[in-house]
Structure formats: C-alpha cells, structure tokens
Deep mutational scan, measured.
Amino acid sequence: EEERTFTNEEEARKAKKEAEKRGLRVTVTKDGTTWRVRIG
C-alpha cells in the first residue's frame, strides 16, 4: 500500500486512473487543500 499526496486535483485524478489501469484499488480523499491518493 502506498499513499501519495497532491495539491492539484488533476494530478490526483491522473494518479488514480493510472493505478486503476494496473488493477489496483484506489481511494482518493481530500484533506483541506491536499488530495491523498491511497493505492493498494
């Protein structure tokens, strides 16, 4: 499991799409101005 943080919503969405392409489970949460993308 890996967690990545982004300040840019577009980049967070891109990371989510890429992980889904690899067949991984992805959770995206917004924490104030930060987007957290949890993969795995």
Rank of each mutant, 00 (worst) to 15 (best):
G32D: 05
E9D: 03
V26A: 12
R22D: 05
I39E: 03
T5P: 02
D31V: 11
E2F: 14
E2V: 12
E11Y: 03
K30E: 05
R13S: 09
L24P: 00
K14L: 12
E3M: 08
W35V: 14
I39M: 05
T7H: 10
T5R: 07
E11H: 05
V28E: 00
V28R: 00
F6L: 03
T34G: 11
K21W: 06
A19M: 11
T34P: 00
E10H: 10
T34N: 14
G40L: 14
R22P: 02
R13Y: 15
K21H: 09
T7M: 10
T5V: 14
V37W: 00
V28S: 00
E2M: 12
E18W: 10
V37G: 00
A19Q: 03
F6Q: 01
T27F: 08
R4E: 06
T5E: 09
T7P: 08
G40Q: 14
E18M: 08
N8Y: 04
R4A: 07
A19V: 03
E10T: 08
I39L: 04
T7I: 07
E3S: 06
R4M: 15
E10K: 09
W35R: 12
T29W: 13
A19E: 02
G23V: 01
T7A: 08
T34E: 12
F6M: 02
K30G: 06
E1M: 13
E18V: 06
W35T: 14
R36N: 05
E1Q: 09
R25T: 11
I39D: 01
F6W: 01
F6N: 01
R22L: 12
E10C: 14
E18N: 06
R36W: 08
V37T: 01
T5W: 14
R13V: 13
R4Y: 15
A12V: 05
L24S: 03
K17N: 12
D31P: 00
A19P: 00
R36D: 02
R25H: 14
T29M: 08
V37C: 04
R13P: 01
L24H: 07
R13F: 14
G23W: 02
T5Y: 13
V26Q: 00
R22T: 04
K17H: 12
R38H: 11
E9W: 15
T33R: 07
L24W: 06
A12I: 02
V28G: 00
R13M: 15
T27D: 04
K14Q: 12
E9R: 07
A12F: 06
E3P: 03
K14R: 11
A19L: 14
T5I: 14
E9P: 07
K30V: 09
D31N: 06
E11C: 08
N8A: 04
G40M: 14
T5G: 03
E2L: 13
R4W: 15
E9K: 06
V28H: 00
A19G: 04
K21A: 13
E9I: 10
G23Y: 03
T29D: 04
K30A: 07
V37Y: 00
K21P: 00
T34I: 14
A19Y: 13
V26G: 03
W35I: 15
L24D: 03
E1P: 12
G23I: 00
V28W: 02
K30L: 09
T27I: 10
E2G: 08
N8L: 05
T34Q: 12
E1Y: 15
T29P: 00
R25E: 08
R38Q: 09
K14W: 08
K16N: 01
E10P: 05
K17W: 12
A15M: 07
T27V: 09
T27G: 02
E2Y: 15
E20Y: 03
R13K: 13
G23F: 03
A12W: 03
T33I: 09
I39R: 00
E1D: 11
E11R: 02
W35P: 13
W35E: 13
D31M: 06
W35Q: 11
E3L: 09
E3A: 04
E11T: 04
T27Q: 06
E1F: 15
T7Y: 11
V26K: 00
E20P: 00
R25N: 08
A15R: 02
T27E: 08
V37R: 00
I39W: 06
D31H: 07
K30R: 10
V28A: 01
E1L: 12
L24M: 09
E20A: 04
A12S: 02
E1S: 10
V37I: 07
R13L: 15
T29K: 07
V28N: 00
W35M: 04
G23K: 02
T7V: 08
V26W: 01
A12D: 00
A15I: 06
L24K: 05
R13G: 05
F6V: 03
R25I: 12
G32E: 06
E11G: 05
T34V: 14
E20Q: 07
K14A: 13
K30I: 07
T5H: 07
R38L: 12
E18S: 05
T29A: 04
E10R: 11
E11W: 04
R22W: 07
E1W: 15
R4P: 04
W35K: 12
F6T: 02
G32I: 01
R4Q: 12
K17V: 12
K16M: 14
F6G: 02
E9T: 02
V26M: 02
R38F: 11
E3Q: 04
K17L: 14
W35A: 12
K16Q: 15
L24Y: 10
E3H: 05
T34F: 14
E11F: 03
T27R: 07
G32M: 01
T34H: 14
W35D: 12
T33K: 12
F6A: 01
